[in-house]
Design a protein around this nucleic acid. Sequence first.
DNA 1: TCCTTTGTTGGCTATTTTGCCAAATAACCA
DNA 2: TGGTTATTTGGCAAAATAGCCAACAAAGGA
Lengths: 106, 106
Amino acid sequence: MLDAQIKSRYEIRAKIVKAMAHPSRMFMMDELAKGERCVCELTELVGDDVSTVSKHLAVLKNAGIVKSDKRGTQVFYALKVPCILNFFSCVESVMKQNAKDHATLS
Amino acid sequence: MLDAQIKSRYEIRAKIVKAMAHPSRMFMMDELAKGERCVCELTELVGDDVSTVSKHLAVLKNAGIVKSDKRGTQVFYALKVPCILNFFSCVESVMKQNAKDHATLS
DNA sequence: TCCTTTGTTGGCTATTTTGCCAAATAACCA
DNA sequence: TGGTTATTTGGCAAAATAGCCAACAAAGGA
């Protein structure tokens, strides 16, 4: 990792992945995969304070994972990158494997 | 997210993604995608303290992303889930899109 | 058996992340 | 214009991460 340029590249990558690495944000991405949602809808679903949800969405937007569209007083968020879904299926496969390994251990 | 079971599911998912969300860990996963590596090799490449690298690897292992094999005094780590690679290509696509958007803004 | 190499773990501080409340904005409607 | 709804931002305290050093454990060789 000596090369600063390479290091920087991994830092940028990590920033994107880090943006996904939160239960509420994972949930919201899943929800957005079904279609756009306004902050109020997501807030209702997640069950946290609106300000918290808004900040989570800002993290996702800042990472380039979602985009927002203000219509009237509402702001609608939508997934910007479709491959996110494939990614989740990979995470699922890790979970399944873990479950299998765990079962084997007992 | 009221349902505790669903919430728990997203927490487990997030734990896996969070394990990936670090520059050094991303780098190591990329390196492991080429083949198994011992801790000493990864330490050399990453350039951090051995203890730091060891802890990063423990995080990845605990998440079920890598597996380890002790041979003699060395411990070899290897990727456990191949789809990790597809995931990175998705992250790359986010990066490319971000770059494009950024260019458009200027 | 003692020494050396390779890794892991404990401990500690610095930094980052979370999530809530309160305050500020923005867009509408009466 | 004044009030209401929807969202973002500032600020702050609690919790989680990161990374270094020192100490410990394991395996092999002299």
